[in-house]
Design a protein around this nucleic acid. Structure first.
Length: 509
DNA sequence: AAAAAAC
């Protein structure tokens, strides 16, 4: 199956090819022809399945004809968060290069002026979060009577956030004669009712079992005491090839504190949460996407739908309150066919949350403990946290920062690393306390910057030819863990990647 | 319990 078989225009196919895609994902294969025919659609799909392009592409072709009228947008896409709305806008820009579609992004946290100006000129595509849309509607700045195409994205999240009444109200302001597409990762009764009410004989497409975690994601529960969480996280971050990671926490305050603490320990991290200015949120996310930093500490604002390429690891610093959030959080990795790893730090008090998660996903998560009996903070780390002044003078001796996520198409493979024997870690770390980190033998520095390392230091027996750019973007795991484990290390759960061997397994709760 | 979304 090829994009050319889906009925898209030549200009659009050109944009798709330029973006480096050749083969549509299952949801794109099923949705695009149906949307082009003008049918309503219910799409049950996790993020990361190519859902956004599944509606953006046909929309561009549908809207390619016709012209705009002031204050009367021709289509409307509703998104639960500002970040997601912006992400969809980016997609329209990426695929709409050969079309001259006008677009307006209506989200809160930014000045209304430009948004109003765009509306007055007339737009083909309106991408909005409900709050700002309702606000502008109330001010008489928008008429939705010319809106013959509506997309309700992430409907289950809209429900969680209490947006359903808003969505219903918005729906009543649109013309009855219209095409409606609804996407949701899960189909709770309220969403089902919403679909029955506002969609007309929709085609139903389901590409992932609802509430089931992606099989490409290797999941672990790391049991630890609440007081050890930070040191355990640092240990985990250092133990593997962490290309790009998102660390989730339940509270905005924890996000702030944790990010500071990680930075103090020499990690290149940043943060995102709802208390930040919108401009700051965008800027920090941009830095993360660009690879200026490789660790994003986040609240659940980033849990759903956020599409950052090449996230190799997700760490739940706190077990999420709701099991749904777990599925969404870990879904930030293992995207587009790549493999990902998700760790959840679990204190005895969190045990219940985990069993809720397991009930929802129907999958028992493997319990692990760090191999060191006590994963205590190393002396320099304790110092870094408790006495920042003293550690400041040694900033140059901090652990080498992780190499950033490579740009698309950049070869990421590198020689296998000899894992440092676990028993030796603490001693090694103590040495590090007095001597600058750079004195540590190179092979024992897991967070060594990749760029400094000679490329073909050692042969990679298991490494076949390097895949071509497009090929890898489509199917090849870009951040496969570097360490190979013994074949009998992990349970047979359908995931065929290696088990990180720095972990010792303590099965059962 | 928290976070998100409008000013």
């Amino acid at each position: 199956m090829n994009f050319a078989d889906l009925g898209l225009s030549d200009e659009l196919l050109r944009a798709v090819t330029d973006a480096g895609y050749t083969e549509p994902t299952p949801i794109q294969q099923q949705a695009i022809p149906s949307v082009l025919m003008g049918k309503d659609l219910v799409g049950i799909a996790q993020t990361g399945t190519g859902k956004t392009a599944a509606f953006v592409l046909p929309m561009i072709d549908i809207l390619g004809e016709g012209r705009t009228r002031a204050l009367m947008p021709r289509s409307l896409i509703l998104e639960p968060t500002r970040e997601l709305a912006a992400q969809v806008a980016e997609n329209f820009e990426k695929y709409g290069t050969h079309h001259k579609l006008s677009m307006a992004l209506l989200i809160g946290g930014v000045q209304m002026g430009d948004q109003v100006k765009a509306l007055e000129k007339g737009v083909d595509v309106l991408i909005a979060t409900p709050g700002r849309l309702m606000d502008l509607f109330g001010r008489g700045k928008i008429l939705l009577t010319g809106c013959s195409l509506l997309v309700i994205d992430e409907a289950d999240r809209m429900l969680d956030m209490g947006f359903i009444p808003d969505i219903e109200e918005i729906c009543t302001k649109l013309p009855k004669q219209r095409q409606t597409l609804l996407f949701s990762a899960t189909m709770p009764p309220v969403i089902k009712k919403l679909a029955d009410k506002f969609l007309d004989n929709p085609k139903r497409i389901e590409v992932a079992r609802p509430a089931s975690a992606n099989v490409n994601i290797r999941q672990f529960v790391v049991q630890c005491a609440a007081s050890d969480k930070r040191s355990v996280l640092r240990e985990l971050l250092r133990a593997e090839e962490v290309t790009t990671a998102i660390v989730f926490s339940n509270r905005k305050t924890t996000v702030r504190d944790l990010n500071k603490s990680l930075q103090k320990s020499g990690f290149r991290s940043t943060e995102i949460h709802g208390d930040m200015e919108q401009s700051q949120r965008i800027a920090e996310l941009e830095r993360f996407k660009r690879g200026d930093v490789n660790i994003l500490v986040a609240s659940d604002v980033a849990a759903r739908g956020l599409d950052v390429k090449g996230v190799s690891h997700v760490y739940n610093f706190d077990a999420p309150w709701h099991p749904d959030d777990y599925v969404h959080r870990i879904g930030r990795t293992g995207r587009g066919g790549a493999t990902g790893i998700a760790y959840t730090l679990v204190t005895p008090e969190d045990a219940e949350n985990i069993s809720e998660i397991e009930k929802l996903t129907g999958h028992k998560i493997e319990r692990v403990k760090l191999a060191g009996a006590k994963p205590a903070a190393t002396p320099d780390e304790v110092e870094a946290e408790e006495a920042p002044k003293r550690s400041r003078g040694r900033r140059g001796a901090k652990p080498a920062p992780e190499q950033s996520a490579p740009a698309e198409g950049v070869e990421t493979t590198q020689p296998e690393r000899e894992p440092a024997p676990r028993e030796e870690r603490p001693r090694q770390d103590r040495t590090r306390d007095r001597a600058p980190r750079r004195d540590t033998p190179r092979e024992e520095r897991p967070r060594d910057a990749r760029a400094e390392r000679p490329r073909d230091e050692r042969p990679r027996e298991e490494q076949p030819r390097a895949p071509q750019r497009e090929e890898r973007a489509r199917s090849e795991p870009r951040h496969e863990p570097r360490r190979r484990a013994e074949s009998n290390d992990g349970p047979d759960d359908g995931w065929n990647g290696p088990v990180p061997d720095f972990l010792k397994y303590t099965l059962g709760a």
